[in-house]
């Protein structure tokens, strides 16, 4: 448990299958962003059989709604939001080729099963460390749903974006293992 790995997006099934819970990963390349409202819209397009505004194959979605960027900065503070609210939408996106999600907090068994079946991982970023994380974002561009403001879909160019593997492709869960190891009840 707990080694440091550098990965560049897009990710393949082979890339994510090598990861284990507790691994520290530094992500490079691009990340997509989206939270509740964007996920709802993507999900509706999938149901209607329509094309998505962004190609999600091999991509990593970061559950984030940043603060407004100050002049001269690519993005404002940008830590993760709580992930369970995306649970109803994530399995379908994973089936369509999404390889990673970044957020904070527990995922449902349905999402964990989908990650195992279609080879995807869930990364945790440090919640509340919005000012720190923003420094790893070099460029941000809105690519869809600009009307959603902080909830719009953005493409972020990132350098050594720090995350921890919480759910791997084998069905393991860092949150459960962590409690098993440290609980004194």
């Amino acid at each position: 448990m707990s080694k440091q790995i550098r990965l560049t997006t897009p990710l393949s099934s082979e890339d994510v299958e090598k990861l284990n819970i507790g691994d520290k990963v530094l992500l490079n390349g691009v990340l997509l962003t989206g939270r509740d409202a964007a996920h709802k819209r993507l999900s509706e397009l999938i149901e209607e059989g329509k094309e998505l505004p962004v190609d999600i194959k091999g991509q990593v979605i970061y559950f984030v709604g940043p603060t407004p960027a100050k002049p001269g900065k690519p993005i404002g503070s940008a830590g993760p939001t709580t992930s369970y609210r995306m649970d109803p939408y994530s399995p379908k996106l994973i089936e369509l080729g999404l390889k990673g999600m970044i957020g904070k907090g527990n995922r449902s068994q349905v999402v964990i099963d989908a990650m195992k079946r279609f080879k995807a991982v869930y990364f945790g970023a440090t919640g509340g460390a919005g000012a720190l994380i923003a420094k790893r974002v070099k460029k941000a561009e809105i690519v869809a749903y600009a009307d959603l403001g902080p909830e719009a879909i953005r493409i972020l160019e990132v350098e050594d974006f720090p995350v921890t593997v919480v759910n791997d492709t084998k069905g393991n869960d860092l949150y459960q293992e962590g409690i098993k190891r440290y609980a004194k009840v």
Binding site: G65, T67, S77, A129, G130, A131, L132
Partner: peptide
């Protein structure tokens, strides 16, 4: 470290 950056750069501690 995050709290230090926020204080020095006058940035929100958390995006929420």
């Amino acid at each position: 470290e995050n709290a230090r950056i926020a204080r020095e750069e006058k940035a929100p501690i958390c995006q929420d």
